[in-house]
Amino acid sequence: MSFNWFRYSSPQTFYPLAGRLAPFFWIAAVALTIAGLYIGFFVAPTDFQQGDSYRIIFIHVPAAWMSMFIYVVMAGWAAAGLIFNTRLSSMMANALAPTGALMTAIALWTGALWGRPTWGTWWVWDARLTSELILLFLYVGFMALHASIDDPRRADKAAAILAIVGVVNVPIIYFSVKWWNTLHQGSSVSITRAPSMASTMLLGMLVMVFAFWAYSIATALTRVRGIILERERHAAWVAQLGTE
């Protein structure tokens, strides 16, 4: 007997599933964050070059990774929604966008906080920070386009096309920014030249990466439930939810 994967591609069946899964990811996110921050702030040794200020990488690096990864996942869902015409895929893309934008903003903010004690300035036009800033623009564009189209189905499709074009563009943007940065040697400080990592640092970082994963999945599931309810509010099964 084969399991029907498409069973969960309908909003009606996915809604309760997401409701059951979300609490686990929320708990995992909280637990892992506490563990990761404990390791990062109390167990990991002080860096001999940067002192304690390096500890921001326990937030900065996972946020930066997630920000890029979520964009690709979001574009993947959006493309699936466009190609297979599955409503749920587009709703997932929609649910991921704010989390991705938040991760990008966190990465930028913590990058600035790190820059202040390390280089004495809040912002440097470093290749990574600049790409991250452009990534934030791409997220804003996706959400702005979706918000400016009234018909949700049309909005899904238009935003999906934009996300796909964005994914094609991301490597080109990243490469061009890197190239631009190496040509202007004045500001060639790299933010990712991480201090030589002690194993506890690495452990703390890994735990934080999993924490961010869990958080992103939890927010996406919670948000997609809201989107499903809003979009399907006139469907019979949603009306039944209230009476149960």
């Binding site: 804003v140 564009g141 386009l145 074009v165 080109i172 490469f175 920014v177």
Partner: peptide
């Protein structure tokens, strides 16, 4: 908002 970021390269 859509086009300017794509113009960057």
């Amino acid at each position: 908002l859509l086009v300017l970021p794509l113009y960057i390269p």
